[in-house]
Write a protein that binds this DNA or RNA. Structure first.
Lengths: 218, 218
DNA sequence: TAGATTGTTAATCGATTAACAATC
DNA sequence: TAGATTGTTAATCGATTAACAATC
């Protein structure tokens, strides 16, 4: 019990840089497992991932000592531990707002269940889409958002709407008790207490690529 | 002419952290312009963006002195300068590989022309999709990739394919002279000389959100 | 001119890497 | 036991912030 407290105390100060590397570790461990391997050293993992062994050991030790001196890490065990840390078995209820191309792509293309979520509804403001099936569920009109959230209490909303709609929707969703926003709109939410916002700014990523390609041309 | 050389020398060591902030500056400047403003101080911009004024001045000075003491920055001018730095007027020829949900969403949803690119073809390995229209152009079968690239010499490829297909396609594309890859697959490309890879790992982003929401629940 | 605000240097902070004793 | 490799502390490196002289 004391150990539990200790681990959580440590976890409080885990930096975003570390957290953002966790899913990548998880992916590589899954790959190693599929290759039939059972153990890996920080050195071996570092080589495959293009990191330093030091960094891997530092990162993992933010959450606990998962390795064994002289042996390394058990791949399956470490994978499970990272799954546990990430919380991928949570099945957080989530809704998608915006059933345009992007919203539909996300709804059907992403594997929600494997990544901690469970999609419960898709909303759009376009009346004429209402009822059409996406990811096996009928698109709902946005006017039903309040009622749905109060009843089903989804934890997370995925925002696939234009910039203009994002700010107001964000406010509405937070007021409805949403704890996480996966934001695909071009709008930047400021810091919000008690709400995690994860931005996917595809336009920014595209322009970064443009810059980097331009630089290569020089 | 000497100044030209100086600026480029400086630019060589611009860190990724700075580069990744440029599109965001660009976005905020566009917004300010739309609001009818003409000038902004680093302090004013910092407040709106949730950064420090210091950081903004440091960032911009990697590329040149765009401001004026006592005045601040001219919004329109600075926007133009960042557009120039990012190279958004390049219209780099680009192709999309993979016309599934995600590929189709990217093709139709992204504004290529405003962000330095010009979409010239969409490929898929699925024979039955061939000819179907996406973003106003017929989907081509992947077997025509080599011939197309040799003829049209696209600069960039956007990879919307499953993990299994990514590695081989990447090799093929680089051999065909591609200089940039916008990678939506779950595959991690290692460092490649002379090729810029920009990853959009949606699964990783989703799991990071899962972690952060889990933490809030505690 | 006086006030504002930059460009830039110096100080601080945080993240990464190196080193090594502990130990399997 | 000897070799391997961790967990962890210390050193280094890079990025952010603070400070301020220059100057519009």
């Amino acid at each position: 019990m004391f150990r539990e407290v200790e681990i959580n105390k440590v976890r409080d100060n885990v930096s975003m840089s570390v957290i953002r590397r966790l899913p990548r570790y998880y992916r590589f461990l899954g790959e190693l497992k599929r290759q039939g391997l059972t153990r890996i050293s920080s050195k071996g993992l570092a080589e495959r991932m293009g990191l330093t062994a030091s960094q891997i050991r530092q990162d993992l030790n933010c959450f606990g000592g998962f390795g064994q001196q002289g042996y390394g890490y058990n791949i399956e065990l470490l994978e499970q531990q990272i799954a546990e840390i990430l919380g991928v078995t949570n099945r957080f209820g989530c809704i998608i707002i915006g059933a345009g191309n992007l919203g539909r792509a996300i709804s059907t293309h992403m594997n929600f269940e494997d990544r901690g979520f469970h999609l419960t509804a898709v909303f759009d403001k376009n009346e004429s889409l209402a009822g059409r099936l996406v990811a096996g569920m009928p698109i709902r009109h946005i006017s039903g958002l309040d009622e749905f959230c109060r009843r089903e209490k989804p934890k997370v909303a995925m925002l696939c709407v234009p910039q203009e709609a994002a700010e107001a929707l964000g406010k509405q969703l937070v007021a409805l008790g949403i704890k996480g926003i996966w934001n695909f709109s071009h709008y930047d939410f400021g810091e919000m207490d008690g709400v995690a916002v994860e931005n996917v700014h595809l336009g920014d990523s595209m322009m970064t690529l443009c810059y980097r390609v331009s630089e290569l041309e020089k």
